[in-house]
Design a protein around this nucleic acid. Structure first.
Lengths: 256, 256
DNA sequence: CGCGATTTGTGCACGTGTTCACAAGCGCCT
DNA sequence: AGGCGCTTGTGAACACGTGCACAAATCGCG
């Protein structure tokens, strides 16, 4: 802990120096901790040990402690972490203390589901607008929001500050939409379209691709299958086998 | 390239020794390369340089070359990679040469969208069954498939070999569903429910959580905002600010 | 008031992943 | 046939992330 700090909660004036440049891996885990903490809070826990929280979040306890120490959080030795305080800290660091407006572009199959997803409103996000390029879809009401045409994006952005855009369009439209989002000042994009987006520096893009996830799982399935097909051998046999591939392949080919 | 291999394509008998234990990071990128390659093939490219493919996939060219070299692929120096051959290689390694049956549990908001997602059938995956615990939803037809009750899972698994399960249920039901999936022999799970699943060794779980992605973006937004709010100061002012939190918050509310 | 049980915070070693930079190899052109 | 330009494959250095193991700190109890 290299920085001084009042023991008060974040949000109290003068309490917390801002954002000490966390490692990406840590940032990616904080939301998981946060969810676990909310669960713990609901079940009446006031404090939690690193071991307990690590279990609830599905990570190593040492890793968790290191993560928390990096955002400067105070645990108490011999006791653990104050659940409510830790929630406040993490929410502050993640910038969840303010409501963020999200604009969702593409109200097709997936976009429809996202529009109805309660994880938005649940945790500090608000859908500012649903947009789509298809005139057929414009006007449709989803979850209390009316779909507007994507050309209205500048107007939407003018109405309120939109920092996060979600792209749920087909891949062919994604880059154009991304450009439009960037043009109106969006600096973070969550991309569900299966393609790479090029954006200027300073704009963050995260990608979620169902097909990729499945293919990664498929790889592991393939690997597991090729291992169980050779149960006696301890691994060296894999490279030593003269026709190793033929074995696994023919097996698989017959099987299905 | 430590292992001998005939220059033939995978799928030829005796050609390729199986699955040389790729690093996870590489595995995670292969699907991206694959997609880029399919695009290139469609636009008539026969060969592609590492530089070109790296661009199309949004990665560094050295990284791409190392990735491809790890699965033993042959490029030709001075020329590049044979697109069709590389597609074959990657599809083989990822286990996409065989059709994999996927069972989707939870046909709510998100599950509905997933059931209609064309990325399944598109790339070597087939939805074997749609399952849900809600009797209201059982019988509903989505995309040519009828929703069955989740208790029929054993029967579905008996009908054909199901290796991959997708969980799109509420968090409260996810662990139970996971247990049921594991019980019928599923060894890979894609979890959309916002919770950690505990599964026995040998079962792979990947998690996709929209809320987490948004929160990560939110963090970066928060960070960017706190930086632009103090353009003159080189960072030390961040910790020095008496009311840093209040400043950035009000600025964002007013400013943009 | 002191001691032991407990739990945090962290130094250190290790493994994984990334990037640079360049030698080796290949095809084309003359 | 030979040389030249281009591209791959990879060794080596570097950055990042992880996990162990332990000292420091706190609480509760006798």
């Amino acid at each position: 802990m290299s920085q001084h700090r009042h023991p008060g909660a974040p949000g109290r004036a003068g309490a917390v120096p801002a954002l000490p440049d966390l490692p990406e891996a840590t940032v990616a885990r904080l939301p998981e901790y946060l969810r676990a903490l909310h669960n713990l809070a609901e079940t009446g826990n006031e404090t939690i040990s690193s071991e307990g929280l690590a279990n609830a979040a599905g990570v190593n306890s040492a890793k968790l402690r290191k993560d928390l120490s990096q955002l400067g959080s105070y645990g108490t030795r011999g006791v653990g972490y104050d659940v409510a305080l830790l929630i406040e800290q993490i929410e502050y660091v993640l910038g969840l203390t303010q409501l963020r407006a999200v604009v969702l572009v593409g109200v097709g199959n997936l976009g429809h589901a996202l529009a109805g997803y309660d994880g938005f409103a649940g945790r500090g996000f608000r859908i500012a607008a649903l947009l789509d390029a298809d005139p057929e879809r414009v006007g449709e009401e989803i979850n209390g929001l009316v779909v507007r045409h994507v050309d209205e994006l500048p107007r939407v952005a003018a109405e309120e500050s939109v920092a996060i855009g979600v792209i749920a369009t087909p891949a062919t439209a994604a880059q154009r939409v991304a450009d439009q989002l960037v043009a109106v000042g969006v600096t973070s994009i969550l991309n569900f379209a299966p393609c790479v987006l090029s954006v200027p520096d300073g704009v963050d893009v995260r990608k979620v691709d169902l097909a990729i996830e499945l293919q990664i799982l498929s790889f592991h399935e393939h690997r597991k299958a090729s291992l169980t097909a050779l149960p006696a051998a301890g691994g060296s046999a894999l490279t030593a086998l003269p026709g190793g591939l033929a074995v696994t392949e023919s097996q698989e080919a017959i099987g299905t």
